[in-house]
Structures are given as structure tokens and as C-alpha cells.
Design a protein around this nucleic acid. Structure first.
Ligand SMILES: [Zn+2]
Ligand SMILES: [Zn+2]
Ligand SMILES: [Zn+2]
Ligand SMILES: [Zn+2]
Lengths: 144, 144
DNA sequence: GTCGTGATGTTATACAGTAACATTCGCCAT
DNA sequence: ATGGCGAATGTTACTGTATAACATCACGAC
């Protein structure tokens, strides 16, 4: 899915969920899409300032929070960053793999594999909510 | 295991690993032990300042980094915090459950359940390193 | 119109983490 | 003992991350 299609799908997605992908939010989403992999809030802020003059942290954080809320982005706690989710339509739980060496990030679907973790949590009297796991390791290129 | 025993075991653990649980590091570990659940670096810093007058962030961060390195603490990315590990002797991978409502934290062992995640990662040409997963949900008390 | 609500702007500040360099401590070889 | 070395700690200053609080704006409902 190219960027334009993605934005359109995202807009429809928000519509269906009863909220709006406003101009600002779309602009932030576009800025995130332009990078590959993880993007930091202050990088987005800098990009936004290039495009529209001044902008302050809350502007960016509010837009990013909204996009995470809608499932368009995932937050990667381990890196204080954000990645685009490209299958936001399906109700999925994600597993984000971060390469310790090159920093490359990829998201894989993982519903089935999480069943085991849910069992473990249940055994500890704990009800898991929807997860966005972040796991670290080595990607194919860096493993050599 | 009570606090005193824990500290002693921790000291022996470091010894075996060829490094030292110095007075400062022990003091920081004790400060972390006094809280239950997740502790933040700046909370530890404040506590430390109460005990010994002045102290600066690097002092605390260096000690915390050391303790994490030795496996005595786990870092909880999602909360920018640290939790005590009470089975640092065994080479384990951990799953830390964080209650979204009350903030309570518990660690459960999870070696077996992780096998499924390793399979998924393998399928994506990704080699996982040792994991400290953080999962969110609701604890027994908050589920009602 | 004007009112209410959600979005955005603005300012200021709190919280988290690190670089760089100075100083001290503990230990060992001389 | 004493000088020298490496590890640990102290100190200063800074960068990066995130939010509180309040002001203003846009827009549809009435
Ligand atoms: Zn996703
Ligand atoms: Zn890599
Ligand atoms: Zn542990
Ligand atoms: Zn709870």
C-alpha cells in the first residue's frame, strides 16, 4: 500500500471509528510515513517545524497519541518511538522486533503465539489487555 | 527471602560474577527494595539524597545500570522504571505484568510460553535475545 | 447570533538520561 | 611506604522526553 492509499484508508478508518483525521493529524501521519522504522516525537516535531514554521511539543504529542489510539501507529516503549502499523484494520496484537545492532524494526502478527502468554498470565490471576510486545534480538543481516 | 538475606545473596551473586556490590550500589539496591513494585530513578535519587545529602543523577543511573546488568533488577521500559528480580540466580527470561489500574507489578517465569514467540521470530528471520517482556492488563483485585 | 465541544496554540515546567571531566579509592608492584 | 593504575564515584552541565495549564479557534446545534 503506497502512502496516498494508506492515508485514505486511515481517514476512512477514523471515520468508521467516529473521529476525524484532521489536517494536522494527517500531516503528522505523513511525516511518520516518510521515515522507515521507528520515529521519535522530537524528530516529527522538527519535521513539522520545517513545514509550518513554529510548532510546540504538545502539538506533536497530541497528534501521535491520537494516531496510536486509532491503531495507526504503535508506540515502541523501549525506544521512546513510534512505528506505522500497516494492518490497522484488523484487531491484532503485535510483536515488534527491534534489531539490537542496526535498529531496524519490523512488526509481525502473533495472535496464536500469544495464547501461551495469556495462559501464563491467567495462572497468575492476571487478565492481559491487548498487547504490543517489543522484543529485541538480531535481524537476518546483522546475525552474520 | 527478607531484605537482609536478599542483599547477602546479591553480594555473593556479584562476587561469583567477578564484580563488587559496593557500598553505594548496595545502598541503591536497598532503596529499591524498600518500595514494592516499580521504582523510578528519580525517586531513588530523592531517597538517596535524604540519606546522604547531595547526590546527582549519574550516581543513581550508574548504580541502577550495574544492578540491571547483574540481573538484580529488571528495567520496565513501559514505565521508565525498575523492579527487583527475586530469582536472579537462575538464567531466566521474565514476563512482567503491570496492572493498568493500580500499577501493581509482578514477575512470572515464562520460559516455556516464550517458545511460541521464538518460533514466530524465527519465521521472520529474527533471532531473539534474552527477553524481559512487559505486558499490561488487570490484576485480580482490579478486575472486579 | 451564541453556546458548547473538540482541536489546536502557547508557555512553562517536570521528568528522564547522558557527556565529559575531576576526584577519590583500593590494590599491586616496586 | 609510595607511586602508579584502573575502577568507582563526584560534579557540572546539558540533551532529550513528556505533560500541565490555560488561551484561542473552528464549527455545528440550537
Ligand atoms: Zn500493528
Ligand atoms: Zn540488524
Ligand atoms: Zn527476574
Ligand atoms: Zn490492579
Amino acid at each position: 500500500m503506497n502512502r496516498t492509499d494508506y492515508i485514505q484508508a486511515a481517514e476512512a478508518h477514523c471515520e468508521r471509528r467516529g473521529c476525524k483525521l484532521t489536517a494536522l493529524r494527517r500531516q503528522v501521519l505523513e511525516l511518520v510515513l516518510r521515515h522507515q522504522g521507528v520515529v521519535k516525537a522530537y524528530q516529527v516535531l522538527a519535521d513539522l517545524q520545517k513545514e509550518r514554521g513554529i510548532a510546540a511539543p504538545p502539538t506533536v504529542y497530541r497528534a501521535l497519541d491520537f494516531l496510536v489510539e486509532q491503531g495507526l501507529l504503535h508506540r515502541v516503549d523501549a525506544l521512546n518511538g513510534f512505528v506505522v502499523c500497516d494492518h490497522f484494520e484488523c484487531q491484532h496484537e503485535s510483536m515488534i522486533l527491534v534489531c539490537e545492532t542496526c535498529g531496524k524494526v519490523q512488526e509481525v502478527d502473533v495472535m496464536a503465539a500469544l495464547a501461551g502468554l495469556h495462559d501464563v498470565a491467567d495462572a497468575a490471576d492476571f487478565t492481559l489487555s491487548r498487547q504490543n510486545l517489543t522484543l529485541t534480538g538480531l535481524c537476518k543481516a546483522c546475525r552474520i
